[in-house]
Amino acid sequence: MQQEKYAQIEKELSPKPPIMKNVIKAFLIGGSICLIGQFIALFYITYFDFTERTASNPTVATMIFIAMLLTGFGLYKKIAQFGGAGAAVPITGFGNAVVSASIEHKSEGYVLGVGGNMFKLAGSVILFGVFSAFVVALIKTILVKFGVVSW
């Protein structure tokens, strides 16, 4: 049988991913995570000397800490299975990627195992995050120089 013909049969019989359903689930889970983050930020603004701008740092740290606990107790993968991108895109998804890789490679020791593999999944997030921030800053700098927008 030809590969093309098989690909056609396979496509016909395989279940289609429910995109609309996944998008709604991702919206709900991602939205809930951000809502929790907003409450934590408000907590830091109200009870500590943080402004809206400076509160983002302790908020991110707290969200990652919560994600770390959820990952360790095996709950985050269940949230992610339900929420998909909604659980992967917020900072908690990044925390989950780092912590899960650390747990996985603990058996190989702390230096080569945990240290060497911690950013196995999250490394590309850091690389492309920094790179895209650089590109955006470059574009904005040029636009400001030409007077199109202001800072």
Partner: peptide
Amino acid sequence: VSADSKILL
């Protein structure tokens, strides 16, 4: 003058 809610608070 600040639009930060902390300052308002």
